[in-house]
Every structure is written in structure tokens, then in C-alpha cells.
Amino acid sequence: MRIGQQVSRFTWPGSPASIGPTFASIARWSEAAGSESLWVMDHFWQIAQIGPPEEEMLEAYTTLGFAAGVTSRLELGAMVTAATVRNPALLVKTVTTLDVLSGGRAWLGIGAAWFEEENRGYGLDFPTTAERFVRLEDTLRLAKQMWAGDDSPFEGEGFTAPRPLNVPQPVRTPPILIGGVGERKTLRFVAKYADATNIFDGGPEFVAQKLGVLREHCDAEGRDYDSIRKTVLTRISLSERSGEKVPSGEEAMSVDQALDKVGALAAVGVDTAIIGMGNDTDEAAYELLGQLVEHAASI
């Protein structure tokens, strides 16, 4: 079991001046603890599951570029990019740029988008569900083409690009992770296009059921199910004092409790836990994160 970290909240004392230094510390601490990856949300407003829309939120790819500059090993991605927000060719160019400047550490995390109010607030179109999935599939197809060095005209179902030139090419072709649990389209797109799936932590039985659907889509597509990384986005706040309240209001876990949690996910086929920490600004938590990373590696 591999461990990554997601940062989904930037509401810290002394903002906005404190945001850059605090986030830089989180990235460095996470890397030193042995985290495999660091992820941020692709939102312009805070989401209701975490806080009010007026909370501080940063643009994802600028933030990932900043993280690349203060780390040397962490893999970097958006959990997950809204396919509707950016021109697909420009998105592929953006991820390529992150990969080049980070020395081959970028991921394309992507999904069909869901936060309509945020889009409307920014004056962005928010297409129908069917149209959003058309844009998602067009983007996935175009990414494959551009990262193959093919600048011939692209004709998608809803998007065209007369010459999607992508120079320089990435240092490493960015792996594609699709986030979401939709059984008819999202998981089918994982089987057809992606290197990884991300499922939110609805508990081991929920995750197992979704992975079973993914396996069926892999069989239908002729795809090797085992070639796809299975990641779960979950919440784990680590503390020496199990049960204490952390700044987010969540209860902290011991390392042993966290190992039980990720072990239950591993038992149903998950190979990577990407954790959000409600005390991610507490440097002491990263010593415990290092222990979790070390012990989880043997699960």
C-alpha cells in the first residue's frame, strides 16, 4: 500500500501572506515523510463538504507548479481536474509543462466535473451531464494523441483542434487518473483510457463493489485489470493522542488505527491511499505519517 497526500484547505492564520510558506512546508514535510504524491483540488471556491465557498482556495496548476519548485521527488496532480473548465489542448499543454519543470512528476487527474454553482459564478459554461462526458472523453483521447507527438488535426465529438502541437514533450508521459464512481461511463473510461482510478472512501464494501464494476469494464475492453492502479481518497489525521480533535474538527487516529483503515482497503484491492489530514499544518503529524508510510508499504 502506497500513501499520498491531498491538501484541500488553505484557510490558515495570517492569510493570504501565510499561504505560500505554509503550503511549502506541507509539501516538504510530506516528501520527507515518504509520501508518494501530493494532490490539490481543482476548484475555485471551497466545496461544501469542507467549508463555506468564501474560504481560501487556490488555482490547482499554479499551486502544483509552486509545489514542484519546493520538492524534488513528490509526484503531483489535481484530484481531479474538471474537464469542462479548460480548453482540452491547453490542459494537456499545462500538464506537460508541469511535467517538464518538475522533471517528470506530473499526473493528469481528471473527471467530468460537478460543481455547477462555482462554474456559473465564474461565468463558465456548465454543460449537461452527457456533454460533460463528451468533453471528458475528447480530452482523454487528445491527451493520448498529443503525448504521442501527433499534431495532426483532432476531431472529437464535441471539440476540434486543427494542430495540437505539443513541444516539448513531457519528460515522462503523465499517467492518467480518472476520479469518480459512475458505473456506466466513468469506470468504463478508466478501463479504456486511464492508468489509475480514484474512488472516494465509502468503506471497503463500497470500494470493492466499484472495483468489481471496473473489472467487468476491463473484461469488455480487453484491458488488463491489474495494470490499473486503484486509489482511494480518504481522511486520516494522525496524532499520538488518538481521539483528540484536530483543527478541522475531526478525531485523530493513531498510526495503528490508520494502518487498520488502509489495510481494510488493501484487502479489497486498493494499492494507494491518498489521505487528507485535518492537522496538515502540524509538523509533528509528519513523523507519524512517516511511520504510516513505512508500515503500509508491507501491506
Rank of each mutant, 00 (worst) to 15 (best):
M1I: 07
I3L: 13
S8F: 11
R9P: 00
P13N: 04
P16L: 04
G20Y: 08
G20W: 05
P21R: 07
T22R: 14
F23W: 05
A24M: 03
S25W: 01
S25M: 08
S25N: 13
A33E: 08
G34C: 06
F44S: 02
F44Q: 04
W45N: 08
Q49G: 12
Q49E: 15
I50Y: 15
I50A: 09
I50P: 03
M57D: 02
M57E: 11
L58M: 15
L58N: 12
Y61L: 11
T63W: 00
L76V: 12
L76G: 02
M79F: 13
T81Y: 01
L91A: 06
T97W: 02
T97A: 15
R105I: 11
R105L: 13
G109N: 03
A113E: 07
N119D: 11
D125S: 14
L136C: 09
R141V: 05
L142K: 06
P153E: 08
N166F: 01
I178C: 05
I178S: 05
G182Q: 08
E183K: 15
E183C: 06
L187D: 00
R188I: 01
F189V: 00
T197I: 14
N198G: 03
F200Y: 15
D201I: 11
D201L: 12
P204I: 06
V207R: 02
K210G: 13
L214D: 12
H217G: 07
A220H: 10
E221I: 07
R223A: 14
Y225H: 12
D226H: 12
S227C: 03
K230W: 10
T231D: 01
V232A: 04
L233V: 07
I236C: 09
S239M: 01
G243Q: 10
G243H: 08
S248H: 01
E251H: 11
A252W: 01
A252D: 01
V262C: 11
V262K: 10
V268C: 14
V268F: 11
G269F: 08
V270H: 09
D271L: 02
G276P: 00
G278V: 06
N279H: 08
N279P: 09
L289S: 06
G290R: 07
Q291A: 10
